[in-house]
Design a protein around this nucleic acid. Structure first.
Length: 200
DNA sequence: CATATGATTCCA
DNA sequence: GGAATCATATGA
């Protein structure tokens, strides 16, 4: 397999609500293609963040230094630091100023990922792909970092988002999506099907 | 300027 | 179970 097997998605691919974008990204590929550094992972878990009206979305703060790319045009990377140590990688979508984005929460190593390096968990995905805040605002429709659409079918599970308990009624919205067949989802899918996970 | 906290991970 | 660790957002 070469990078040619994973063509970049065009801008139009990103012009949709985060709910649909998040679902579409399950099974899609995230590719880093730079001279001497080719990495590919298969996305298996995502979450939708839906703009200023979503109490869990950073866009609720309005236009600030941090939300500049989140509130920018679709098809670009929104990368932020959480808990002072972990970078989180998001795909901005829908339309310029909408504040919609999809958090990539977990992936499966495909190519160029160091052996033993895990990709389950948003901080780990970013680290495995070498994504830092330096990539914030990066255009995702071409090299060096891009998304390649899913090939084939995927059975997608749905659950509430993780780590957003502070968001009131929005904490329970079923805006997390994952590949039911993947062993690399960051949390047990059991929490997903409404059976509860013993917490919260 | 001061302070609280987080879209998490790692270790005990 | 709890600490780590710092940029951001918010309020004085």
């Amino acid at each position: 397999m070469t990078v040619a097997s994973y063509p970049p998605a065009p801008r139009e691919y990103f012009l949709r609500d985060a709910r649909y974008m998040a679902r579409a990204l399950v099974g899609a590929w995230l590719v880093r293609s730079a001279p001497g550094d080719v990495r590919v992972v298969r996305i298996v878990e995502t979450e939708a963040y839906r703009g200023p009206g979503d109490a869990a979305c950073h866009a609720r703060a309005g236009l600030t230094r941090r939300t500049r790319t989140l509130l920018g045009p679709p098809g670009f990377a929104y990368v932020f630091l959480v808990y002072g140590r972990h970078e989180c990688f998001n795909v901005v979508c829908l339309r310029d100023g909408s504040g919609h984005a999809v958090l990539i929460r977990a992936a499966e190593p495909v190519t160029g990922i160091a052996r033993g390096s895990r990709c389950d968990g948003p901080g780990r995905v970013a680290r495995a792909m070498g994504i830092t805040r330096a990539e914030d605002g990066c255009d995702l429709t071409g090299q060096p970092l891009y998304v390649s659409p899913r090939q084939g079918r995927v059975s997608v599970g749905v659950s509430a988002r993780v780590g957003v308990a502070y968001a009131g009624e929005f904490a329970g919205r079923p805006w997390r999506f994952f590949d039911r067949a993947s062993a690399h989802v960051s949390r047990p899918p059991a929490s997903a099907i409404g059976l509860g996970n013993g917490k919260e």
